[in-house]
Design a binder for these strands. Structure first.
Lengths: 209, 209
DNA sequence: GTCTATATGCAGATAGAC
DNA sequence: GTCTATCTGCATATAGAC
């Protein structure tokens, strides 16, 4: 509706601009233009650019984290859990396609703060870390440490978003429709890729005993 | 040696700073300081910041591309080719750990130019695209399109570098030595992960003989 | 070629009228 | 609350002495 409060309009506009240009590249003027107001009013609602940025960044992030925690703590079988995580990330990012790059920038700009925020939100990888070891011990999946598995999965999820401008040009003749279809396929491709990679050779191992 | 030409010193310094801060975040003053000269001299050798940036960025990139092309055009079996690519990227990045983020930023800042540069250098994915289809048709690997496979592999390679500040904190108690060890393991972990994921049932049976 | 000093422009932030 | 006008500082870039 057009009855959005100005503060809300600013946040919306700031999301667009910050996400496109990053904290350094964004201009308060551009945010003001996009919100249909002037710079002074920005500073009325948000004291500084830094403050506005944090508000936007952690606002977006806090939409993702609760869903992840639920999955982490859930009781599904391990491989289903991976599938759920991929799905969660993927649907979230199709709504926020520039988020991965946004997060990556912030990871490198102010990691301390980001790390603290995640802890505050109750996101703790040790929730899952032990799970992987357990699955391996039970012979359900091939041996891999949690950090490696984590890096693999997140990397596969995130790459097509951060690399889009190049990938779309080089691999899809710069056709955005084709690329959106490609992105939609990722969820199933990644899960089956991971499942296949983790599939234990239990049969072989057992017969060797 | 102290006998480096100043121009060379500038490029070295600019690499450090640009890579750490990105094009937007970098300051000419900081580059000058790191090179042990003053700002005016920067502009004597490089007309503008933009020019210096391009020189640095494409200078670094052009060290990576030839190696990739050799692999693309080589005659090794397909899975060995993947291993070679992972190794190539990986050794390159252990020398340039901030490069992935650097490239990602530029992909989004000026994709047209980057895409053109790659073409100029003769890097063309269609070299490999057909290869994947062929391997699938021969039943050597499980079905997957090239863009998906490409995104998977590059994502896995790149993720630990762009996410380092966070990953190191969250997964390795902020111990840089441990993280470097983790990075060293990536090469073998990724190749075996990919090989396992791509292994066709056919191959699987044969390898068990 | 290398420096100091300065010009130019722009971005973040504020003052103050309404 | 919302605006116009302005301050302040900083970053790129240039002028000009040596």
């Amino acid at each position: 509706m057009g009855s959005d409060s100005i503060k809300e309009k600013i946040v919306q506009a700031a999301q667009q601009v910050f996400i496109r240009k990053g904290m350094d590249g964004a201009r308060m003027q551009e945010i003001a233009d996009e919100a249909g107001i002037n710079k002074a009013l920005l500073h009325y609602y948000f004291h500084s650019k830094e403050q506005l940025f944090k508000e936007v960044f952690y606002g977006i992030l806090s939409q993702l984290i609760p869903g992840l925690i639920v999955i982490f703590k859930g009781s599904e079988p391990f491989l289903d859990k991976i599938e759920a995580i991929v799905t969660e990330y993927d649907t979230y990012m199709s709504k926020n396609p520039f988020l991965p790059q946004f997060v990556i920038r912030e990871i490198n700009r102010d990691p301390e703060q980001l790390s603290g925020f995640m802890s505050d939100q109750g996101l703790d990888f040790s929730l899952v870390e032990g799970l992987v070891e357990k699955e391996i011990a039970m012979g359900n999946i091939r041996p891999i440490t949690f950090p490696h598995l984590f890096a693999n999965v997140i990397g596969m999820i995130v790459m097509p978003y951060v690399g889009r401008p190049l990938f779309q040009r080089k691999l899809f003749r710069n056709d955005p429709v084709k690329y959106d279809m490609f992105l939609q396929e990722r969820k199933t491709v990644i899960t089956s890729f991971v499942k296949q990679a983790l599939k234990s050779e239990q049969l072989r191992v057992e017969s060797e005993k």
